[in-house]
């Protein structure tokens, strides 16, 4: 099996102090598979993702090799890298509210992105976006395109990002905590759309989350990170059934404790009702 993405000894450090944020991380991603990166906040998940996009702040230095379709994108000139962002490597952010220019209608960002990559006319873009937006269950797409971000909900904006990814047809989607900022119902809808997106495009995905429950539904493989180090990796089921590293055990047990607690509460309720 060919790996779509191979990360070799990715090291991210502060340029001024030399403080290491991510230690020699290596991992691979197969074509069409979904890798979840799990860990607490500050463990280096997001920085790792942005390192693949090469969008970390300029004061962070990254070394190592990032092979995307066999090409080391860590060594690409910025101009070449920019062409790959969006078209080959797509990102879905945590906070839909902040992801679009608050002073422009949503359509502006979509138009700029699509005409940059494909040179389509406005009419073509509107048609394609409408279709994609309908498929992620957004009603009245042409109206939504003319709305400002603050007039839409976080879940809707998240689905607009997914719709954009649908039109861009990238090879890899990096979803950085895409459901964390949402309420439970929107969370469910967005997750459904992400799963469908994978099925429709056959696209590979990196899914960052700290919620094991969410991860369990989408991912094939898991990477557990703690304090900038990858502490455990493996297939989803294995990690859940037989976690080896104490931190993973802790994560899994809290997840189980939480659902057990919930189950017990529900049982108590039903006993009380009867």
């Amino acid at each position: 099996m060919i790996h779509l993405l191979e990360v070799h000894q990715l090291k991210i450090s502060e340029a001024s102090t030399g403080k290491v944020i991510v230690h020699d991380g290596s991992f691979q991603l197969k074509q069409g598979s979904c890798l979840a990166i799990v860990g607490e906040s500050g463990s280096g998940k997001s920085v790792t993702c942005r390192a693949i996009m090469r969008l970390n702040k300029p004061w962070l230095r990254q070394t190592g090799r990032i092979l995307f379709k066999g090409e080391n994108i860590n060594a690409l000139p910025e101009k070449e890298m920019r062409k790959r962002r969006g078209k080959n490597l797509c990102m879905i952010l945590q906070n839909g509210m902040g992801a679009f220019d608050p002073s422009s209608v949503i359509g502006v960002h979509l138009k700029e992105t699509l005409s940059e990559h494909f040179g389509w006319s406005n009419h073509e873009i509107a048609e394609k976006m409408k279709k994609a937006m309908e498929s992620v269950m957004l009603k009245n797409p042409s109206e939504v395109l003319n709305k400002y971000p603050h007039q839409l909900s976080g879940g809707m904006l998240q689905r607009i990002m997914i719709a954009l990814a649908l039109v861009l047809e990238p090879d890899l989607i990096i979803a950085d905590e895409p459901t964390t900022a949402l309420d439970t119902i929107s969370q469910y809808e967005v997750l459904e759309q992400l799963i469908q997106l994978r099925e429709r495009l056959g696209v590979a995905m990196i899914f960052v989350s700290h919620d094991l429950g969410v991860v369990k539904r989408v991912a094939d493989d898991v990477l557990v990170m703690k304090a900038g180090k990858i502490v455990e990796r493996g297939e989803m089921q294995t990690i859940f059934l037989a976690p080896r590293h104490p931190y993973t055990k802790y994560l899994v047990s809290t997840k189980l404790a939480l659902s057990n607690h919930f189950r017990r509460l529900m049982e108590e309720n039903s006993v009380a009702e009867s």
């Binding site: 920019r82 220019d101 960002h109 940059e116």
Partner: peptide
């Protein structure tokens, strides 16, 4: 802001991003 990150992640040229930032 996040919208700058998302703009860059979408492959927008810096010129367009600067215009958005300037406007805000």
């Amino acid at each position: 802001e996040e919208y700058v990150l998302f703009g860059r992640a979408s492959g927008l040229p810096e010129r367009l991003i600067t215009m958005h930032v300037l406007r805000n």
